[in-house]
Write a protein that binds this DNA or RNA. Structure first.
Length: 277
DNA sequence: ACCCAGGAAATTC
DNA sequence: GAATTTCATGGG
């Protein structure tokens, strides 16, 4: 995707199928906050930026031209979501409806370790509180950036901590899970990059070596952190959606882009809770 | 007081 | 082994 510098940042022109609110505030990343003008501020890959869309141009303020690839990858700009949406809309009429409802959803390519940790935190939790815990984790243990924001802490940094050190996060029983994840990643016992290309079941098993990582957290890590877009995480919302909206269908029926379909369905379900009364 | 939240571990049957 | 309970915390 063509990337140009402008005074204040970088920009990508003629970007389609991207809505910042649908993508950054739909429960895949927990580090973005909407500004009054509709732009979003957040941190990824240790860089604090502000993202905005004007017409069909994606503007990344405070980004350097050398980071064009980082942001192009992060927003998955090379993948043709319009075509994928057409393709998966044929699978089921309700999926077609969900995709039409939020065509601006994209699957972010987040840092694997960050995705792992944030979805460990997500278990039996709500999105608002997850954001608070993630914020305190970064503030307490991440590197301070020049503008006062904080990077997500490294596995190496967190591996030197104890569960009690994480008490200020108020993450409860998840503290020891985070420490176990940090130690196994930093120690090489769990190799995240291997999960990018490994056989899917094998990648799942690798992640599930971590205490506190089951099938659902593993699937979210694979989808949002390692861009395994065939992953189809099933949480309470997806369970409801599968029961009521897609009876007799299984996750594997959604094909090679199941993860994208999953996000359309997840978002559509959350925006229409009355469907499940 | 009760229930739920992008679940998984621990315990019990 | 499969079903149930527990695990911290905060908001409705």
């Amino acid at each position: 995707m063509d990337c140009k510098e402008f005074y204040g940042g970088i920009k990508f022109e003629n970007v389609s199928d991207l809505d910042l609110r649908q993508t950054l505030d739909c429960g895949q990343s927990f580090r973005w906050n909407e500004n009054p003008d509709g732009s979003f501020s957040g941190v990824a890959f240790g860089k604090s930026v502000r993202a905005a869309i004007e017409e069909k141009t994606l503007l990344i303020y405070n980004a350097s031209p050398k980071d064009c690839k980082i942001w192009s990858d992060y927003f998955d700009l090379e993948l043709e979501y319009g075509k994928i949406r057409e393709q998966i809309s044929k699978i089921h009429p309700v999926l077609s409806e969900a995709a039409k409802y939020a065509p601006g959803i994209r699957i972010l390519r987040q840092e694997p370790y960050e995705a792992l940790c944030t979805f460990i935190i997500s278990q039996n939790n709500n999105i608002k509180r997850i954001k608070g815990i993630v914020h305190r984790l970064c503030e307490g243990f991440g590197d301070r950036l020049s503008d006062g924001e904080f990077a997500f802490p490294s596995a190496e940094r967190m591996a030197g901590l104890t569960a009690d050190d994480l008490a200020p996060l108020r993450a409860g029983f998840r503290n020891r899970y985070l420490i176990d994840a940090a130690q196994k990643v930093a120690g090489g016992e769990v190799q995240l990059e291997k999960c990018r290309t490994a056989d899917y079941e094998e990648a799942r098993r690798e992640l599930m070596k971590i205490t506190g990582v089951g099938v659902k957290v593993a699937d979210c890590t694979l989808l949002f952190g390692l861009h395994r877009i065939e992953a189809f995480p099933v949480d309470v919302w997806m369970k409801r959606a599968m029961d009521k909206l897609f009876p007799k269908m299984e996750p594997e029926d959604f094909g090679e882009y199941a993860g994208i379909a999953q996000q359309y369905i997840f978002h559509y379900s959350r925006m229409h809770p009355e469907l499940f009364d």
